[in-house]
Design a protein around this nucleic acid. Structure first.
Lengths: 194, 194
DNA sequence: CTCATTTATTGCCAAATGGCAAGATTATTA
DNA sequence: TAATAATCTTGCCATTTGGCAATAAATGAG
């Protein structure tokens, strides 16, 4: 397999030249994650900064009662890593698991840092990944406060239909901050309306 | 006023040497924000990366109905800026306002970038600020999903009592994702228990 | 200090969401 | 393909939170 998709993704950011992207991409290694396999397990340090080329992943943590709480979903053409664990080199509280067979390209922490210091344009790219992730989470948090569960589900359906296709209902429910029972009812309501 | 507090803060991060911190601090300018004054107004581009030395700020956005929703609080010895607006140079949807007379030190976007490129240790500091903020928001989002409003309030009371001291009830309520009416009742409940 | 304004509390009732358990449906695998 | 397990739906009722309005308390401007 070749890394054209990764090169394209780096270059599309507008922050990296084509030659730069090609050079950066040579430092990434291929990685396959089979369905249900873990990209990251809680208690471990996140060691890979991954470009997801194909497949679908989800991140989840456990609440006090031990229930799984979905904290995020990852579609192709996204960078995947647990921010705190990867950058602070501490054990993760989150798990990241493949919902379907997935493939991508990764780089280790040491290599990433070397490359950050050597290539200013990759640094810019790295910053932009952090800023984008941060901003997306701010939006999500605000929606948890200002929208009803039904509105959040409707928006998810509109903006990320691939999530609804790939993830089981109870997983989506905990991502929306509700129980699977409630989501099932919301789904019925929305069905009526359309 | 001297910038010893800023130097100390930079150095305390463990990422910046004392001489490095002193050099970095020379690029920051002093700034005072009077009570009720805005550090950032929605519709404007966040132009200052601020070290808050004293005082207390809050960030808020508006929901669809036009209600203010508090998105964050800032205590002394924190960096203050709106991530997306500052780094992407786009207009902000958030406002950041002083709840009491406040003071700090800021640096512009251009100066920050120059300094990032010139001083690797400041880059590390900058990354760590982003990562810390991101991580804190992840924790907050998870608590919105897994905890009741009463638990969230009790935790806020325990970990950030200065917020309860400095911000009016309705401001805290919207930060917790509930109405002021509900928070008033929660407060009463907690009062009974203790 | 006093009046006007903002902020906080409380009662009443409505709406949203949860808990549990029984069935129905779908997926998995021996 | 049979049966086993996982997922989803639904009814019944409880709990949490919200909406509104009246009142009380605190704050701030003149």
């Amino acid at each position: 397999m070749d890394n054209a998709q990764l090169v394209q993704f780096l270059h599309n950011s507008q922050l990296v030249s084509l030659t730069g992207a090609q050079k950066i991409a040579t430092h990434f290694k291929e990685k396959a994650i089979a369905k249900n396999e873990y990209f990251l397990e809680s208690g471990h340090i996140c060691s890979h900064y991954l470009f997801l080329a194909s497949g679908f992943l989800r991140a989840f943590a456990h609440d006090v009662e031990g229930n799984e709480v979905t904290t995020g979903f990852y579609s192709p053409n996204q960078m995947v890593f647990e921010v705190s664990s990867y950058f602070n080199r501490v054990t993760s509280k989150e798990n990241i698991q493949a919902l379907v067979d997935s493939k991508g390209w990764f780089i280790t922490y040491e290599e990433l840092n070397t490359l950050f210091h050597a290539m200013p344009e990759f640094r810019e790219f790295g910053r932009s990944v952090l800023v984008k992730g941060f901003t997306a989470l701010k939006t999500r948090t605000l929606s948890m406060i200002t929208e009803t569960a039904e509105e959040r589900y409707a928006n998810l359906l509109k903006t990320n239909p691939e999530i609804i296709r790939n993830a089981p209902l109870k997983t989506i429910a905990s991502y929306l901050g509700i129980t699977d029972t409630s989501l099932s009812r919301i789904r019925k309501e929305i069905g009526k309306k359309s």
